[in-house]
Structures are given as C-alpha cells and as structure tokens.
Simulated scan of single mutants.
Amino acid sequence: MLRSLYDWTMSLAGKGSSERWLAAIAFVESSIFLVPADVLFVPMALARRDRVWRYALIASVASVLGGIAGWLIGYYAFETVARPILEFYGKLDTFDHLSQSVDFSTIVLLLITSGFAHLPPIKVVTILSGVAHVNIWLFAISAALARGSRFMLLAWLLQRYGESVRDFVERRLTQLATAACMAAFFAFVAYRYIVH
C-alpha cells in the first residue's frame, strides 16, 4: 500500500494542478497522511527551479495548517478520530510511549526531529500536542519555525545544487536523518540542563 501511495504522489508532480496537490498533501501529511510532501515538492522544485521558493512557502503554510488540524483532532477527537488513524498506520504504540512524558519543550524537540528527519512522523507530534493540551499559539509558532525551516532549507539546496542534492539525499538519507536527530537531541539537552 505504501508503494502505491508513493507512486501516486510522484505522478502528481507533472500535473498543472501540482501546487494545489502540494498544498493538500502537505496539509494532510501533518494530520492523517503517510507519504511526506517531499515526494511531490522535490520533483516540482527540480522541474521549475524558478518557483522553488513559492513551492516551499506553499508546503510550509499548508503543513502548519495541517498541524493545527492534527492538534484539533488530538484535543477534541482523540478517541473517535485520532486513535483509529494512529492504529491504521501502526503508530499507536509510538504515540502511547511519547504521551507518557510530554511538555512544551518535548513537543518543540519532536517538531524539529520530525521536521528534519520524519522521526517521529509529524502526524504523531501534532495529535500528541492536542492531547497534551499544548498551547495552540505556541504550537503553531513552533510548527511554523520547524516546518518552514525544513522546506526553506530543502528549497535552497535544490535551487543551488539541483539534481545532485537529490541523489546525495537519497543515498545518505539515514545518515542525514541520524545527524539531524543527534543535533536536535544535544541542543535540547543543552537547553534543558545547562541553560536552566
């Protein structure tokens, strides 16, 4: 099923309505969809490098709005909507583990690691934020910074290096994700235990 979702998403990049599809996928990725918006964003940006910043802005705004939708699902409809979604994707155990010790600084760390390395999936973080009753405005600002930074960095890399960055990322995705998570973890530890 995952492969067919991926192939379908990739096929959207060549359509005239690709910007609307990018916004829709970035929105639903943050609350219910499994395939990340990157699989549409990257081919679109490579095909039209003159529009890469426009695409990054569309993906960022839609992703944050989708995150707010995920927050609302977690806050108001966990049992009826969120639990079945998490069970369907096999993420309920991850969610239950994370929900044991959640505060705002944990959510910020999860937004960063999810934004840059998809660990954990963004939908888990957004729903968890609502369940934990994290302040919606703080959540929205943090999500905008984390998700916006991710898409803007990807846009800059794609505009500057084009196809070669795609090859590099695909070959070294695990190492890059691990490095991003380690950096975020150490930044969190420094903030939590050294600054305070």
Results as ranks from 00 to 15, higher is better:
72 L>G: 13
132 A>W: 09
100 Q>C: 04
17 S>E: 14
46 L>Q: 01
128 L>K: 00
83 R>P: 07
30 S>C: 12
46 L>D: 08
125 V>H: 00
36 P>H: 01
53 W>R: 09
52 V>M: 05
50 D>E: 15
22 L>V: 08
65 L>I: 12
128 L>G: 08
76 Y>A: 10
115 G>W: 02
122 I>S: 13
122 I>C: 03
61 V>C: 03
36 P>E: 04
52 V>S: 08
103 D>G: 14
17 S>F: 11
44 M>W: 00
102 V>Q: 09
139 F>K: 01
31 S>T: 14
46 L>M: 07
17 S>N: 14
8 W>R: 11
50 D>M: 01
5 L>I: 12
30 S>R: 06
35 V>W: 00
146 A>N: 03
6 Y>D: 11
130 G>M: 11
146 A>Q: 06
62 A>W: 11
127 I>R: 00
59 A>E: 01
85 I>E: 08
24 A>S: 11
23 A>V: 08
59 A>H: 00
110 L>Q: 13
67 G>Q: 00
107 I>S: 04
56 A>K: 00
94 T>Q: 14
17 S>R: 10
146 A>C: 15
106 T>K: 10
4 S>N: 14
40 L>F: 10
135 N>T: 07
12 L>V: 03
72 L>R: 02
58 I>L: 05
13 A>T: 05
49 R>A: 12
30 S>I: 01
112 I>N: 01
34 L>Q: 11
142 S>F: 06
4 S>D: 15
20 R>Y: 14
118 H>Q: 07
20 R>C: 11
44 M>L: 07
143 A>L: 01
109 L>D: 08
117 A>D: 03
45 A>F: 09
